[in-house]
């Protein structure tokens, strides 16, 4: 006999449970958790290094990469607790991987948790890790057409950061196109331009994170 059964459950139900548990735990501890997403080479790790050097809040970092612990070594050298996740071919991080990484981080001693996702503008945008928000990181040399070509990430980003802004005089980059497209996709998101290696714009970024920290602390 053939029978039709209703299931009505999310495909990612198991992982969504992990994401909900993480969000609850971070809420309880008033930790701001940010999921950094951008292409390979967009400058995500360099942005984090510059942030760690200047921030007065206490940070920890989860690094997601297909292979190697190079990014984690850079973050450790900058003085923050860090866990490296190797996805061994996986193009994005999932909440169950983050849940496991959290076990080895000193959550009692931090205010902000940065998750640097696998370098990729497509897949990481689809997966909830339990974060407060996704931060879209796009660099000047990648070109100004990225927001419209990868709309999902830019649409849901909590903030959009344009990195390597100091390279503008050296490459053809259409500022107006980039920011107009970002506005069209996500009018509410704060926008920042940074040159991480020179420390330019990092203060504004840190102020923004501090604002999220304050509003999360008040919401407790």
């Amino acid at each position: 006999m053939v029978k039709r059964v209703e299931i009505r459950q999310s495909v990612m139900a198991a992982d969504e449970r992990h994401a909900r548990a993480i969000r609850k735990e971070m809420g309880r501890r008033s930790i701001v958790m940010l999921n950094l997403i951008g292409s390979p080479g967009a400058g995500k790790t360099t942005l984090l290094e510059a942030t760690l050097r200047k921030a007065s809040f206490r940070c920890a970092v989860i690094e997601g990469d297909v292979a190697t612990s190079r990014d984690a070594e850079r973050i450790a050298a900058a003085g923050a607790p860090v866990v490296q996740i190797n996805t061994k071919g996986g193009c994005h991080l999932e909440a169950h991987l983050v849940a496991k990484a959290l076990e080895s981080l000193p959550l009692d001693e931090i205010d902000v948790l940065f998750v640097e996702n696998v370098g990729n503008l497509v897949c990481p945008a689809e997966f909830d890790l339990g974060e407060d928000g996704k931060i879209a990181v796009s660099s000047v040399p990648e070109g100004a057409d990225k927001p419209l070509k990868y709309p999902h990430l830019f649409h849901q980003a909590l903030a959009v950061i344009l990195t390597k802004a100091d390279l503008k005089p050296h490459v053809a980059f259409d500022d107006a196109l980039f920011w107009n497209d970002v506005t069209g996709l996500n009018p509410k998101a704060p926008r920042l331009e940074v040159a991480s290696t020179r420390g330019e714009g990092i203060g504004d970024w840190i102020s923004l994170v501090e604002m999220w920290l304050r509003s999360k602390g008040e919401g407790r």
Partner: peptide, 12 residues
């Protein structure tokens, strides 16, 4: 943004 398993036809 849905990604749901709606139903399944099974042989019993």
């Amino acid at each position: 943004m849905d990604l749901d398993i709606a139903s399944m036809e099974v042989e019993e």
